[in-house]
């Protein structure tokens, strides 16, 4: 049985000020996996996602979403940026932030209406944040802000979800709530790609994993490739010892 390839990255190289942060990445992600991208700080994990989504221009290489360039497939992709990348003092409410997820399907100029509002309220309910819909976003806790971001991605009703550290700065309850929603998405046949920091939880949360450290080290099912060999190659230290400590 051969599954479709959801995301294919081919010879991708990205540089900031002529210093390569991603070097000749080849990667293909099959449809329907829940995949972690792991690697040390500065490994280029966020950069990989951003260049797949066309937020950063690579200096070489190409990306295909279901065989076509990203710009033709925007409606199939949802994105959750790092929580710290936005200004939470921005004058807006939780519901309004979630509604932003509908902007992509509306296109330029057209305003969100009743239908978009209904979808957004449903997404808020799904992440357990309906009671906070009119709360100003700076008045939300870190975990609540992350749930709002997740709801905004859910509203996009995409086939592929990219999430940049969705567990950063959230409490244990929120972490479990988020991973349950991600697992539901996978059950519904969606592809979910998550930049992840906590190596301990990789086997429990994910079924696929990509090891990345400027170069691509390995991609595959967690049960096959999540081993000391790849961890050591990625982090440069003997990880068996480090994890057990």
């Amino acid at each position: 049985m051969k599954t479709k390839i959801a995301v294919a990255v081919d010879d991708l190289t990205v540089a900031y000020n002529y210093k390569p942060v991603l070097w000749d990445i080849d990667l293909s992600i099959p449809e329907g996996v829940l995949m972690a991208i792991v690697g040390p700080n500065g490994a280029g994990k966020s950069t990989l996602i951003k260049s797949i989504l066309g937020i950063i221009d690579p200096i070489a290489g190409s990306v295909a979403i279901y065989g076509k360039p990203y710009t033709k497939q925007r409606d199939k992709v949802a994105y959750v940026p790092q929580k710290g990348s936005v200004d939470w003092d921005f004058p807006t409410t939780a519901l309004d932030v979630v509604m932003m997820g509908t902007y992509g399907s509306l296109g330029w100029i057209k305003r969100p209406g009743a239908k978009e509002k209904k979808l957004s309220l449903e997404a808020l309910e799904k992440v357990g944040m309906l009671a906070f819909k009119n709360r100003q976003i700076s008045q939300l806790s870190g975990g609540q802000q992350q749930r709002i971001f997740l709801a905004r991605a859910l509203v996009q009703n995409a086939a592929i979800y990219f999430m940049d550290e969705p567990f950063q700065g959230v409490d244990a309850t929120t972490e479990i709530a988020i991973i349950n929603i991600l697992k539901e998405l996978r059950k519904a046949g969606k592809t979910v790609i998550v930049v992840h920091h906590d190596l301990q939880t990789v086997p429990e949360y994910f079924d696929w994993v990509t090891f990345l450290n400027v170069k691509h080290i390995a991609t595959g099912p967690v049960k096959d490739i999540f081993n000391d060999d790849n961890l050591t190659k990625t982090y440069g230290i003997n990880y068996k010892v480090a994890v057990q400590q």
Binding site: K50, L53, G54, I55, T71, R74, V77, Y79, P81, S85, V86, D87, F90, T92, V97, M100, Y103, G104, L106, G107, W108, I109, R111, P112, R152
Partner: peptide, 17 residues
Amino acid sequence: KELKISTFDVGLSSALG
């Protein structure tokens, strides 16, 4: 709407086109 999203969240604004 475009000004709002690109002011609040540059990354998503760019990803959505």
